[in-house]
Design a protein around this nucleic acid. Sequence first.
DNA 1: CTATATCAATCAATCGCTTGATTAATTTTG
DNA 2: CAAAATTAATCAAGCGATTGATTGATATAG
Lengths: 214, 214
Amino acid sequence: MEKEKIDKKDHILDVAEKVFSEHGFDGASTRMISGEANVNMAMLNYYFGSKEGLFIAVVERKITSFQDILINLGSTGMSPWDKIEQYIEIYGDKVVNNNCFQKLLYRELGITRRTELSDKLRSILMINVGELTKILDEGVRLGQFSADIDVAMVMATLYGTKNYIINTPLMASTMLGFDVQDDKMMEEKLKPRIKIYMKRLLKAYLMTDNDNTK
Amino acid sequence: MEKEKIDKKDHILDVAEKVFSEHGFDGASTRMISGEANVNMAMLNYYFGSKEGLFIAVVERKITSFQDILINLGSTGMSPWDKIEQYIEIYGDKVVNNNCFQKLLYRELGITRRTELSDKLRSILMINVGELTKILDEGVRLGQFSADIDVAMVMATLYGTKNYIINTPLMASTMLGFDVQDDKMMEEKLKPRIKIYMKRLLKAYLMTDNDNTK
DNA sequence: CTATATCAATCAATCGCTTGATTAATTTTG
DNA sequence: CAAAATTAATCAAGCGATTGATTGATATAG
C-alpha cells in the first residue's frame, strides 16, 4: 500500500508535468490533470494541498536530478574547454530527456508575478549557472579563452538556443526540417546536432581573438 | 470623435498587450484588461468580438512593424557579413522597444494547442527567418562564411539568446548584474551589449574554419 | 430651423459555465 | 474497530460573453 501510494503520487506528478507543460499553469485545470491521471479530483488536494502545491511538487521532484550533474565537473582535472565540451554533452542529453519539464520551467519563469514560485525555480537554475561561470572564468584566467568574452551572454546563448528549440518546436521544426517533437527524431537528429553546433559555436567564440577595431 | 474612437481602441490594445505579456493569455482576464484600461468590459467584445479576438488584434497591430524591416536588406549591395551586422543592429533595437510584445509572442507560441493562433504568429516570424536564411546562404555561396555552418541553428541562437534575456528577465538580471527590465538600463547597457556580443559571436562562428577532427 | 430617425458607443446587470477547493459519506487497509 | 484512502456531491468565486437600455452625436425630413 505504501508502495502503491507512492506510485500513485508519482503517476499524478508525471501527468501533471505533462499537462502543465502543454497548457501552462493557468491553462491547465485540476480536472484535466485528475481526468488524464484517472484519479478523483479531490485526490490532488488530498496529496498536494492545492494546485500550486502540485505544481511545486512537480518542480521539486526534478531538483535533485539537476543539482548534482555539474558539481563534480568543476573539481576534475580537465581543461576548461574539455569541461565545456563535457557540459554540453551532459546538458544536451538532459535537455532532450526532460524537454517537457524544461518547457514548463521557463514558461512559468517568465510570468512576472508568482514570486514565491519563481524564486524557487530560479534557485534551481542558478546552480548550473554558477558552475558554468566558474569554468568560463577559469578558462580566461588560464589564458585558454579570449580575455574579452562576455560570460553572462555566453550562458544566455547556451540556455537560450536550447530553449528556443524546445519551447517553440513549431518554429524549430520548420527551420530544421524535421519534427523536433518526435522522440525518435529528437534522439537521433536533434541531440547530436545541438551538441556539435554548440561545441563549434562556443569554441569559435571563446578561442578566437576578437580584435576591437571598433 | 473619429480620432477619439481610434485612440480608445489603441489604448485598449496597449493595455491588453501589457497584461497579456505579464500574465499570459490564460492568466490575463478580460476584467483585468478592461479595468486597467478604464473601459467597460463589454467594450472588449464590442470592439474585438472575443478575448481571442482581442489577442489577435494585439498581434496583428504589430505585424506591419515587423514585416518590412528586413525586406530591403536583402536587395542592397552589402556583403553578407555587413548585412548580418545590419540585421543585428535593427533586430537589437526592435527587441528592446518591443520586449513586452516579444514576451507574449513566444509564450503563446509554446502552447501546444491554439493552432489557429500559432499559425498566425508563426507566419509572422517566418518572414524574418526566411530573409536571414537567404543572407546566410549567400555568404556561404560567396565563400565568405564557412561552408559547414548550421544555418538553422544560427537562427535558433540569434532568436534564442534574445528570448532568454527578454523572457526570463530575473535570470538574465542575475547573470548580467543589472536589471534588464529597467528601461534606462535596457537602452544604455543591454542594447549595446547584445549587439556587440552577437556580432562577435556570429563572426567567430561564421568566419572561423571548423576543422572536423572528430 | 425644428423635429424625427438613425446609429455607434457605452453601461450595469446577468447569463451559463468552469474554476479550485471542500465536504461528508463510503470503501479499503492494517 | 480505527485509520487511511477514495469517492460523489457541492461550494463560492471567477470566468468570458451577452443582454437590453441609455446616451449623445449625426443625418434626415417636414
